[in-house]
Design a binder for these strands. Structure first.
Lengths: 230, 230
DNA sequence: CAGTATCCTATCCGATACTG
DNA sequence: CAGTATCGGATAGGATACTG
């Protein structure tokens, strides 16, 4: 029996042996959410060192959870895809998320604010359908933050691709949103609705887009578990 | 931010921070299964050192997952009970178990055989209702094992309490079961049915009890996920 | 029975730098 | 961009003994 094994035949223990190592669940979450390339994974798990990320990906490959291969569209670039067993982990990730959203103190959650993570998740879940049928640019400004963490742009391309920039991409901006990181995170997590914190957000630009923000801004997959405070 | 934290506001990460430390999931599994006292927990998680068990219980208490207090029936004895948040972890444990049973190689599972763990789980899930309405004793013998791991007794009391002994309790035995640990584990996990491995089990004693073993022997909670090999 | 205390080391991990 | 290599240090946790 390997050291580090639990030595139990129970399937719970066997699964935990594989999945309950540092960063693994968070990494799988990022893959379930759709990231496939090394540097995309890094953006979703920014505090994980690249060597550990690389190591975990190999372990997951050996375990049959991840398969590695050239990207379909861009050969020469490696992609990490979930296998069937990997996709089945979605139920575990969901169980974690639902439990976490329900039972972890909101207080603790809001001590872990991170604008790059927030914007990266917002990018992923933004719903382009209520937006104009052309390139649309939304700028987010967090005045309390410094340097490259202060200003962000979401660029929604005509066919729904969304890009995240932390330097000005140079396009005309349709809507400027100025708020603080905590408020924006509360909205994303479903702890507040835009209309409830209107006094903490300033809009400039297209008033229609401003007033419909709650519809095109996607929320966290677990937001529905929260009992909307305020 | 504490070292050891993921620094993410995502509920998945927050929950993983709490639950993905060594032994924690396996311990919670044992609590979800019903154990409440320190030494019962030890039997379910035998390879965990008592100091680590004690430490984990304290952490779970701080996290609001476990509450500690005197036993209802036996004051003076401490009991560890799951709080409401703790009971909600059942969905996570189930997700682990279902995934593990489905995707972990049977081979790997059967490398972690452990008679005390198996008997402890069998004790818990045994269904007394098909058995005679009196004290019933079933003896299990694993000839390939040595010493105290070789011989076990399940004592089913009239009102359905089941005791596990590894030394002869002295009662008349109704049924002797002789088999090997791998076969018995396969049955428990739902990888085989009694009638499929009849040639690997010897019965002596009450023939009616022998022939209905599949009905009173409870199976692993995850056995239904397995596609019955052989 | 129900834990606590102590010690010690393996290993995991973080940081950083480097490469094709 | 997509990783690998190296290194050092903290710490988690294993083993064991002990206590009320």
């Amino acid at each position: 029996m390997t050291l580090g094994s639990y030595g139990q035949f129970c399937p719970v223990a066997m699964a935990a042996e594989m999945l309950c190592t540092r960063w693994t669940i968070v990494l799988v979450r990022e893959m379930v959410a759709g990231s496939t390339r090394f540097n995309d994974l890094r953006r979703g798990v920014p505090r994980m060192s690249p060597s550990l990320l690389s190591q975990r990906l190999k372990e997951l490959e050996v375990a049959g959870i991840v398969s590695r291969g050239p990207a379909d569209d861009e050969p020469g670039v490696q992609e990490y895809r979930l296998t069937k067993a990997g996709h089945d982990l979605q139920s575990i990730i969901e169980a974690f998320g639902i439990w976490g959203q329900k039972w972890i103190e909101t207080q603790a959650t809001l001590e872990n604010l991170d604008p790059s993570l927030l914007m990266w998740d917002m990018r992923r879940n933004l719903d382009p359908s209520p937006l104009p049928d052309r390139r649309t640019v939304i700028s987010f400004l967090y005045p309390e933050l410094a340097g490259g963490r202060r200003h962000w742009w979401l660029v929604v391309e005509p066919f729904g691709d969304v890009d995240l920039c932390s330097t000005d991409p140079g396009y005309d901006v349709d809507l400027w949103v100025t708020t603080n990181l905590r408020t924006m995170t509360e909205i994303w997590m479903g702890l507040a609705r835009v209309d409830q914190v209107r006094d903490k957000i300033q809009f400039e630009g297209d008033p229609a887009m401003a007033s419909t923000m709650q519809t095109w801004l996607g929320l966290s997959p677990f937001s529905s578990q929260s009992k909307l405070v305020h």
